[in-house]
């Protein structure tokens, strides 16, 4: 059943991304310049709703959830994020939104996907020498904020989720230009 579910989830996700204009690299760059915060607010709202829902479910049907917490190898995760951010700022796409953009008929999205495929190829070639040693540095394993704070995961999800909602409510969507 997984292929069917995953395809349907992908279709819905692609549709949402297209509707909030996150597949527009111009919109992404306006968000990164902090001129318009709609995509950042969309992402924060997604996470707030998702975390409160998932951790509520975990109180009632814990055995039904398929968690997959990614390991926190601090140096590699941070370095990867910093490299990713440069690419995000230069191209205006992420690995998922470029595929959505391709579906919309954007040629620059197709070029971004091609760049991603080349990037993946170079990565697989240099992995053993450059990357594998890096991901062993400061590896804390699969930890969550609840592990870190020794609090109930549901309470942490509620607190973080509500905090996100407050920030979303306070932030403007269109930022007034001071210049």
């Amino acid at each position: 059943m997984t292929p069917l579910y995953a395809t349907l989830v992908g279709i819905a996700m692609g549709f949402f991304i297209q509707r909030v204009r996150a597949s527009s690299p111009g919109m992404i760059v306006r968000n990164l310049r902090l001129e318009n915060l709609s995509v950042i607010k969309f992402m924060a709202l997604t996470m707030a709703v998702g975390m409160i829902l998932v951790y509520t479910l975990s109180l009632f049907v814990p055995s039904l959830l398929h968690w997959d917490i990614k390991p926190t190898y601090v140096l590699g995760v941070l370095l990867g994020g910093l490299v990713f951010g440069v690419g995000f700022g230069v191209g205006g796409y992420c690995p998922g939104t470029s595929v959505v953009g391709m579906g919309e008929g954007r040629k620059d999205a197709m070029v971004a996907v091609l760049g991603g495929i080349v990037g993946a190829f170079v990565f697989t070639v240099v992995y053993s020498v450059l990357i594998a040693p890096l991901v062993k540095v400061m590896d804390f394993g699969k930890i969550t904020l609840a592990d870190l704070t020794h609090q109930s995961p549901f309470v942490v999800a509620l607190v973080v989720g509500v905090l996100f909602l407050i920030v979303i409510k306070l932030l403007p969507t269109e930022v007034q230009k001071s210049r």
Partner: peptide, 12 residues
């Protein structure tokens, strides 16, 4: 951009 996002994502 496409190259860097995938390369960075795979490091992380």
């Amino acid at each position: 951009g496409g190259f860097l996002i995938v390369f960075g994502a795979r490091i992380a």
